[in-house]
Structure formats: C-alpha cells, structure tokens
Design a binder for these strands. Structure first.
Length: 310
DNA sequence: AACCCGTGGGT
DNA sequence: TACCCAAGGGT
C-alpha cells in the first residue's frame, strides 16, 4: 500500500484491510473482488492483485510466511528490492539497504547526485550510496531513521538543515544548493483524452462491466466507456428507447494523462432489457446495498452523481 | 530505457 | 491553479 502512496493516505486503508484479512492465509483464501473492494480509491490496483497472488504463493511455497531470503522475496509479484529489503530489515532483522523516496532525497542532497532519481542510472548510483552507508547491525533502526530524516528534516521543500545530524558533510548544504537537489523529473505535459460513459440505471441498480486484469483500472468494475459520443448513443439505444441525458462531466487525472469524462444517464425499465451481449462480465451494482467489489475513484464519483440526482 | 499504472497531499 | 511527488514495481 505504501508504494508511491503517502503514509497518511494509507493508514485508514491499512486498518480496514488488516481487520478483514488478518493473516496471509485469510488473504490467500479470499476472493479477488473482496480484496479489490478494500483497495477502492487507493489507486495502483495491480498492487492489490499482486498482493493477493503473493499471499497464495506464500501459502503454498513458504508455509504461509514471508520468505527469509531476499532472492525468494523478490520472486513475489509486487515485491521489488525496496519493499523486500524493508520487510526483511524491519520484520526479520536482516542487514539490507533500502531506497524509498525519502532516502533518495537525503542521498541526492548529501552527495549532490545529478540526474533525476527515477532514472535507471541514477537509481543505480543511489543504491550504491545506500549500500555504502547501511550498517550491518541495528539495520532496522538505521533504515527507519534514514527514512524519518528524509520525511521530517530533509523535506522536499524548506529542509531543516539546522536540525540535520548529517549537515556537516552534506554537499548540497555546504554549497547552499539544497533547493537544487534532487534534480526534478524532466517534465512532459500530459495528453488529454476524452471519454463518454453510459450510466445504465434500472431503479436502484447501475450496470457495471469488469475491466480486463491489465491496463487502467485492471480488474475493477466500471460503467461502459466510449471514445465518442456517437458510440455511446448507439450503445444506449440498445438498452433504452429514451435518449441518454447528460449527467455530469469532470476531468480525472492519472499519473500519465488527463481523462475528460462525460457521463450520460440512461434509464431503463428492466435489467437485461434488450438483447445486449456484453463481452465482459456484467454486474448490476446496487446503490442501496453495494456489492463488495473494486471501484475506481472516478466510478465512485459517478455513482455518487446518480445518488444525488435521485 | 521508457513507459504504464491512480489518487490525493502540499505548495 | 497547476504542478510535483509520495514507504515503487511490472513490462
């Protein structure tokens, strides 16, 4: 959950997740829709599917435990070097270096590392620096301290260098260039895509389709989406003789593009009204008694728009 | 190597 | 507002 997601955002999700899945076995035995349900709104949904798959692997291959070696940990889907090393140092007392966003920032300033910290070459350099610093004893304490130094002192903006325990040999601080490091990501403007979404409503239910496991919103349930308004109208006519009416429109921004969403409301008299054959699994989502499935934040917003309109 | 994958906090 | 980026990993 913490991958590319702030701690404060994760905490409520973590609490609910651990209440529902209190062990690796509980998670491994769960239905994927149940897992994605508790991930609704958190983003990067492949993490949920990877975690579920990893639980199954641990159940069958590692006696329902997190593996003891770095090599075995790295075989789990969704577990890379940073996550594996964090777990192994904190939970099992192993001596391994870590490299999260906070550590990257500390190291990039301390050694004045040129190059964006996300590039392959720079990450390689940062790992080398982390390896060189990491002690062979009390590693968990050190790693936690290094991350906390990054989050509380060596902040992204206005770092508290006067409170920093390693300011004495911080290259950026010595030259007064703290604000120049880490080097910002090369900026590319995000493309804008447009889509038209059909909210097919029958009483208290709305038609949702399950998205394929890979790609945007993988495995989640979303209303039918179309690139053009014409496609939407042609689709809507299969369900209802009454015309689709505008519901709401807004911009949803992903990590790599903007999506301008135009939502339309199509009221139908009965479920499966026409002879529509959907290529994907379908679900009539009940607004009053919601099913336990995964929804994207944008889908929740669309469902909310219908509820308010009632 | 470059791109894909979400959403929200902070400025 | 617009922008950067967050306890990264997969392809």
């Amino acid at each position: 959950m913490l991958q590319q997601t702030q701690v404060a955002t994760v905490i409520p999700y973590y609490e609910r997740f651990l209440s529902r899945f209190s062990s690796i076995d509980a998670l491994a035995n769960a239905d994927i829709d149940d897992v994605l349900h508790l991930w609704t709104g958190l983003g990067y949904y492949a993490r949920a599917r990877n975690l579920h798959k990893a639980a199954k692997m641990m159940q069958t291959q590692h006696n329902s435990q997190f593996p003891d070696s770095l090599e075995q940990a790295l075989e789990l889907p969704g577990v890379g070097r940073s996550t594996a090393s964090s777990i192994l140092t904190f939970a099992k007392g192993q001596a391994l270096p870590i490299l999260d966003g906070n550590v990257k920032r500390v190291l990039a300033r301390h050694a004045m590392v040129d190059g964006w910290t996300g590039s392959t070459a720079t990450q390689k350099q940062l790992w080398r620096l982390s390896e060189a610093l990491t002690p062979t004893s009390q590693t968990g304490v050190f790693n936690q301290g290094l991350m906390d130094l990054g989050s509380m002192v060596c902040k992204r903006s206005k770092p508290l260098c006067h409170e920093c325990p390693v300011a004495i040999d911080c290259q950026a601080q010595l030259k007064g260039l703290q604000d120049k490091y880490p080097v910002p990501k090369p900026k590319k403007q995000k493309p804008v895509k447009t889509c038209h979404i059909a909210m097919i409503q029958e009483k208290d239910t709305v038609l949702l389709l399950q998205r394929p496991p890979s790609g945007i919103w993988g495995g989640l349930w979303c209303p039918p989406m179309f690139e053009t308004e014409q496609e939407l109208h042609e689709y809507a006519e299969q369900y209802s003789a009454t015309k689709a009416q505008p519901l709401t429109q807004f911009r949803h921004t992903f990590s790599h593009y903007h999506l301008d969403i135009n939502a339309w409301l199509v009221r139908v008299e009965a479920q499966n009204h026409s002879r529509v054959m959907e290529p994907q699994p379908t679900l009539w989502y009940n607004l009053q008694q919601p099913q336990q499935v995964g929804l994207a934040a944008a889908t929740e917003r669309l469902l909310q728009a219908i509820t308010i309109k009632e």
